[in-house]
């Protein structure tokens, strides 16, 4: 770990100014990912700007009926917030499917968006990695790539974004609010994370110095028909092999609105309007679900160790949609609700 200085400003504009003035600095929220990366020498800022004293921990209703999640509210406080539990249970489920109670107590909402890939090669300084050191090559392509991307990857990088929370936020079409010396702006969730392309070192579209201040959830929470389904290599405390956020609105048997997002498969939570359009206006049947699944996975490409994820993701989508509609659903999901591997 590098040596660094630390300061905890109390105002957003001060924090942002400090970040701009110190190019080698980094913001630190809960620290659960950054300190890990610093211990691995993947990240080596010389100055940390602590965000914990900023007034960004509130969760409050918005005038338009939405909900604002402060960037510094913890994942735990967010998941268990009465408004989130009641109106956005998909988000509650996704957050609780990730990490552990300890980590969720530390990790912040802004930090969750900023967490970096779990790619073995990215984390290991002994191996080349374009994301860590642009131009050195991608070791995962042709290496061990069970946890890598099947969608939206490039020849430069096949890393995945590891978050569960972000998969739900993508489905819910949250809006990311950021501050910079130039003022505030909003970024739609779909545009926040990016695909690796030929700049795999960039995980997102933040401009230099920008600070996430809040996540705004639109009014529509899909609180009735939703599922977050996470498949992983052990029953808890493991990153997703594949995860699905499914949210529907139903009028009788007819789907009137639909959101589908995948985790564990791409450099960002994976959505596709065409897949959701295949659901909307159609009866909630397995046939419809399979069509949507096929569309969402269209163009998926596997590598030596992760090709199975293509079929697994399709099946997981169908299952998640089945669960969301509670259609003929006989599996005892409650028995392992929190421990589905």
């Amino acid at each position: 770990m590098n040596s660094f200085t630390y300061s905890p400003p109390t105002a957003v504009d001060a924090a942002v100014r400090e970040r701009i003035n110190r190019p080698d600095s980094a913001y630190i929220g809960g620290g659960t990912n950054l300190i890990d990366l610093m211990k691995e020498n993947v990240a080596h800022p010389t100055h940390l700007i602590g965000l914990k004293k900023l007034p960004l921990a509130e969760i409050e209703n918005l005038p338009d009926g939405g909900l604002r999640l402060g960037a510094m509210a913890t994942n735990a406080d967010t998941a268990w917030h009465p408004e989130v539990e009641k109106r956005y249970p998909l988000l509650n489920q996704a957050i609780l499917a990730g990490a552990t109670p300890q980590l969720r107590n530390m990790a912040t909402n802004g930090g969750n968006l900023m967490q970096r890939t779990r790619c073995y090669y990215f984390y290991d300084l002994a191996t080349p990695c374009n994301k860590r050191e642009p131009g050195t090559g991608c070791s995962a392509i042709g290496g061990y790539n069970r946890i890598h991307a099947i969608l939206g990857a490039s020849e430069q990088c096949i890393a995945t974004h590891p978050s569960d929370m972000c998969v739900a936020l993508a489905a819910l079409e949250a809006v990311v609010r950021v501050s910079s010396p130039q003022g505030e702006r909003s970024i739609s969730f779909a545009n926040f994370h990016r695909l690796p392309g030929d700049r795999p070192e960039l995980d997102n579209t933040l401009r230099p110095g920008e600070l996430i201040t809040a996540l705004d959830l639109p009014k529509k929470g899909f609180a009735k028909n939703f599922t977050y389904l996470k498949l992983r290599d052990r029953s808890s405390y493991a990153f997703a092999v594949v995860s699905v956020a499914a949210a529907l609105e139903l009028d009788g048997d007819i789907i009137t609105d639909a959101r589908l997002a995948l985790g564990g498969v791409a450099h960002k939570p994976w959505r596709k309007a065409e897949a959701e359009q295949l659901l909307i206006g159609k009866p909630a049947t397995l046939v419809t679900f399979r069509q949507a699944a096929a569309e969402l996975l269209a163009g998926a490409e596997g590598h030596a160790h992760n090709a199975f994820k293509i079929e697994l993701a399709k099946r997981a989508i169908v299952r998640a949609l089945k669960q969301a509609t509670e259609m003929d659903y006989v599996l005892d999901t409650n028995a392992f609700q929190n421990s589905n591997p």
């Binding site: 779990r118 090669y121 002994a126 070791s139 042709g142 290496g143 029953s235 405390y237 929190n338």
Partner: peptide, 23 residues
């Protein structure tokens, strides 16, 4: 092991999975 490097790649407790209580 990535035999290209001859190196164990999941050399941590996040990726070398041992059972948790939920298992």
């Amino acid at each position: 092991m990535d035999h290209g490097f001859g190196r164990f790649m999941n050399h941590n407790l996040a990726e070398y999975h041992i059972p948790v209580m939920a298992d």
